[in-house]
């Protein structure tokens, strides 16, 4: 098929080998078309007049066996055109997505280089009330001073840090009790060093009535949410808090 391709290219005056309809530079050209591929040898002599340049297709279609070839060529040309656009767009998209994925992965991995050293300090200033609910569960309300410095958690891939303070204790019934007392979202490094005075945001209720005189830990947990990639979490355990012996 290469023969015909070249011949046609010469005939239509270059381009992509497609037939640009109505180019005038083919006037009087005598082109020789040899179709060797499938054993059909045709000799096409095109004597052109000015007015015959219009498509170039019709005149060759008269030539019997060549007709199919030309149609084929036409189709391939069209296809190659489409193919080349689609193909390029596809290649570009694939490349862009690959780069994006690699960059996301690298951003996520770069978080591993950060070794944070956050600090936290919590003081229970007051037991607001402490009672047994009608259903037999102990509930307590406390007021706390929470201060923390979480600035070192922030890297360039950090979207936010979710921080919460949980009371953790063990009872004869439950091996693990974790009750979130306060939480907050830190949107940026500027807000990562804070001090607040608050009573518990969520209810501090035991499953049972085991809270009198109960020793518990206050644990500062944080979850680092990245802009993309893996999430990190860690905590600081602060032991040595004790609830009163009597309801009040």
């Amino acid at each position: 098929m290469d023969y015909i391709n070249k011949a046609l290219e010469g005939y239509s005056g270059g381009g992509c080998g497609c037939w640009g309809g109505g180019r005038g530079d083919g006037v009087g050209v005598t082109s020789e078309v040899e179709v060797g591929e499938e054993g059909v040898e045709g000799r096409v002599v095109v004597d052109e007049e000015d007015d015959m340049v219009s498509t170039g297709l019709e005149e060759v279609q008269n030539e019997g066996t060549i007709e199919y070839r030309v149609a084929e060529q036409w189709r391939r040309c069209n296809q190659r055109k489409m193919h080349s656009y689609g193909y390029r767009a596809n290649a570009l998209l694939t490349f862009a997505l690959t780069i994006l994925a690699v960059m996301c992965a690298m951003a996520s991995l770069s978080d591993n280089l950060n070794s944070p050293s956050p600090t936290a300090h919590v003081q229970v200033t007051h037991i607001n009330w402490f009672q047994k609910q009608p259903n037999g569960h102990d509930e307590v309300s406390v007021t706390m001073n929470i201060s923390a410095d979480l600035q070192s958690l922030f890297t360039w891939n950090t979207k936010q840090v979710f921080v919460f303070l949980a009371a953790e204790y063990e009872t004869h019934q439950n091996s693990v009790n974790q009750i979130s007392l306060w939480d907050g979202i830190i949107p940026s490094k500027d807000h990562a060093k804070f001090w607040i005075h608050t009573s518990n945001k969520y209810r501090f209720i035991d499953q049972g009535n085991n809270l009198r005189g109960k020793e518990f830990n206050l644990t500062m947990h944080w979850h680092v949410m990245p802009k993309t990639g893996k999430m990190f979490a860690d905590k600081i355990v602060m032991p040595g808090y004790r609830l009163p012996e009597e309801y009040r």
Partner: peptide, 15 residues
Amino acid sequence: RVIKVHERQDTGEVD
């Protein structure tokens, strides 16, 4: 997000 956990001593079931 999980805000409260109670894990049973004997069966290990969690609430």
